[in-house]
Design a protein around this nucleic acid. Structure first.
Length: 307
DNA sequence: AAGACGAAAGTGGTTGA
DNA sequence: TCAACAACTTTCGTCTT
């Protein structure tokens, strides 16, 4: 397949931090949210076969290894019924024995994984989680299951916790709210198990940055790219002035978007922004006030108001 | 009438003794 | 284990457009 020239820089802002969202097939600039290319196809290698010998050696046999199947995609099933009639009695006895062992070999953990991963798959596609993060979530769940951390907790909550952790690790955070809506679970529960698995599995997760959320919130609000980059700009400045530490990243992202929208004449109400960001208007107001003060934006806002 | 603003009281989680 | 604490929420009244 023919590839276009390789992109390494964002044409909009020049940043090199690009993020390939596989689930959407888009390359997005992490700094300003600019969508650089859409409808990308899998770049991974594909061989062509010229004769049968090459076919043997090059063909990628079976599906790739994956953590999202309970046996990592390597399932081999021992055949049953149908062909039994053609067997000699001794062969038949052997097959029965093998089948018996196969079912025995699947430990309680394996069986549990099967259900959990099915659930994970369902939720991940519902929430549009990129494949990499889904894989990671599956791996985390597997590790948790093997350590016996699921005991005493509902399977769903551990799946949710793993998914939440994986999303954060990959810089594509979903809010606790979103995840809790996809499961019949409440936020508290998920947060709790999330922290628990992180502690037990020694998973280090950096606090999320508001920038990670800006992109998603903005697209839900249908804001123009220019406004989005303005919001990112604002967050960067706020970071420098150290008014972002200790504050909820979602609140900051929301406030930055609100300000950016005001400044570029795409006015959104606090209510609108608050809803998609999952925070209250009050929080936006508080952050907004800080932003105006510290970034000296009052004059600009006033000008807009007068128009 | 809707949106923005702010005060007051409440919530859940972290921290430090 | 408990209390202090910061961030955030909920609620509600007031002001502005």
């Amino acid at each position: 397949m023919k590839m276009g020239k390789k992109i390494s820089k964002c044409p909009e802002c020049g940043s090199k931090k690009l993020y390939w969202d596989r689930s959407r097939g888009e390359v997005i600039c992490k700094a300003c949210g600019f969508v650089i290319e859409e409808r990308l196809i899998d770049f991974s290698q594909e061989w062509r076969e010229f004769d049968s010998e090459q076919g043997e050696s090059r063909r990628r046999v079976g599906s790739p290894l994956t953590f999202t199947k309970h046996d990592k995609g390597l399932s081999t099933k021992i055949g049953k019924a149908g062909d039994l009639t053609k067997m000699t009695p001794s062969e038949r006895r052997m097959y029965y024995r093998m089948r018996k062992w196969q079912t025995r070999i699947s430990t309680p953990i394996e069986r549990n994984l099967k259900f959990a991963l099915a659930e994970l798959k369902r939720i991940a596609s519902f929430l549009d989680v990129p494949k990499i993060a889904e894989e990671d979530a599956a791996m985390i769940y597997r590790m948790a299951a093997e350590k016996g951390l699921v005991r005493g907790r509902s399977m769903e909550s551990v799946v949710a916790g793993a998914l939440y952790a994986a999303c954060r690790r990959h810089g594509v955070p979903r809010t606790l709210d979103e995840i809790s809506h996809a499961f019949p679970l409440d936020k508290k529960e998920i947060g709790k198990t999330y922290r628990f698995i992180c502690r037990e599995l020694r998973i280090r997760i950096l606090p999320t940055s508001p920038q990670d959320y800006v992109q998603r919130f903005a697209s839900e609000l249908k804001l123009k790219p220019k406004t989005v980059s303005k919001a990112v700009e604002i967050i960067k400045k706020a970071n420098k002035l150290e008014i972002t530490s200790g504050k909820g990243p979602m609140g900051i992202a929301a406030a930055a978007l609100y300000v950016a929208a005001l400044l570029s004449g795409e006015k959104k109400t606090q209510r609108d922004v608050a809803d998609v960001a999952g925070v209250t208007e009050v929080t936006i107001r508080n952050r907004y006030k800080e932003l105006l003060e510290k970034l000296k934006l009052e004059d600009q806002i006033k000008k807009i108001r007068e128009k």
